[in-house]
Simulated scan of single mutants.
Amino acid sequence: MFAAIKRHCQAILSQTPTNRLLALDVLRGLTITAMILVNNPGSWSYVYGPLRHAEWHGWTLTDLIFPFFIVIVGISLQLSLQRQQLVGKAAAIKQALLRSAKLYLLGLFLVLFYYNFRDVNYSYIEQKLTVVRALGVLQRIALVYFCTVLIALYCATRGRIAAIFGLCAVYLGAMYWLPYQDAQGQQFVGLFEFGNSFAAWLDNAVLGANHVYYAKATPFAFDPEGLWSTLPAIASCISGLLIAQWLQADRSVVQKLRGLLLFGIIAVWLAELWHFTLPINKALWTPSFVLLSSGYCAIALAACLYLCDVKKYRLWAAPFIVFGANAILFYMFSGIVARLLGMISVGSVSLQSWLFNTIYQPMLGDFNGSLGFALSFLALSYLVMYGCYKRGYIFKV
């Protein structure tokens, strides 16, 4: 069995192009794997703490997953920048706009792909179309990616650093000092509370309470991938540009490792200190959260570089290469399957609930059963993604 697994992993590694940064592919795969794992428990009532988001201020390992992906988008963008510049800036911007539009529409498709067959009174138009969530994970990636392309094309290193500081400064300026008021005329300023911040007020005013994730938040409905928090999310992506520039420079792997670790450790340390005055908060994507998540991403990339390029320990990474090579397809596949499991009925419950209640919970218990379901979901996904990888099919947006 172990020999078969080894041959399987070696076959995957043999298909990897020699000119690619293996550590980045592995980190992307680890990130999207973690994202799908936390998104698909057997039951949301039984999820281990590290696999949940922080309730508000603070962070868990799960809170680092999405910003890792954002930073990786920036790294990948910088590594492909020379190819984009060859076609000219106008063509590169057009391509980026088209890609962003596709990402946004894919995200919108996942929002709309649901029907409650168990409720005879369910109205798709009233309960889905007219209250469609405007933003989300893929939608945020779309907006962040396009803005970062513009910065990558027109700004050198100093301009990119200035953009990070500028975006965070504008974000904080509004969060701290722009007054806003609720429907009763009560005025607020400088708050970072659940449902009460400038970011929440803006989402409520522009998107409307029916089109955001936290529709029942008070006094303002808001979205964790909302409008104003997109600014520091762009800063996260720009940090990926700078990390990639460091990797592209003419220096040894050991020097690159040391630089990534030094940046990562300092960034995390500063973020934790900053947390005392500016809370680390994923839903608001505060600049302290930008610093923390970018720092940990640099540390994680350094670890992958060390294992894959210095120590040459690569067999363990093969499954993550498969997932990372088709990250968007993996995300779409998992989203569609998860929704189908919720739509298909077995008696009066969904197929997912039936599987958890009938198989996983009796065998493994509440929390382990929920985790076991998520791991089984990953195993099924791997079979599909490996089939695509083996045939050379890479879904590109």
Rank of each mutant, 00 (worst) to 15 (best):
R28N: 07
T33P: 00
A34T: 04
M35I: 07
M35Q: 11
W44A: 06
Y46E: 08
Y46P: 03
Y46C: 00
R52E: 12
W56Q: 11
G74H: 07
L77K: 03
L79V: 04
Q82E: 15
Q84K: 13
Q85K: 15
G107P: 02
V111W: 09
E126C: 03
L135W: 03
A142T: 06
F146D: 01
V149C: 10
G159F: 07
G159A: 09
I164E: 01
V170R: 10
Y171M: 10
W177F: 15
Y180A: 01
D182F: 01
D182R: 07
Q187L: 11
V189D: 06
G190F: 09
S197V: 08
F198K: 00
A200N: 09
W201K: 02
G208C: 13
K216P: 00
K216Q: 14
I234W: 03
I238E: 00
L241V: 12
A244C: 09
A244S: 11
R251W: 04
L261F: 14
E272M: 14
H275K: 04
F276G: 07
I280T: 03
A283I: 05
V290H: 08
I299S: 06
C304K: 05
D309I: 01
K311E: 09
W316K: 10
A317I: 03
F323I: 13
A325L: 06
V337R: 02
M343Y: 11
S348E: 15
V349N: 04
Q352R: 15
F367M: 04
N368T: 08
S370D: 00
L371N: 04
G372C: 07
F373D: 05
L375A: 11
V384E: 06
M385I: 12
V397I: 13
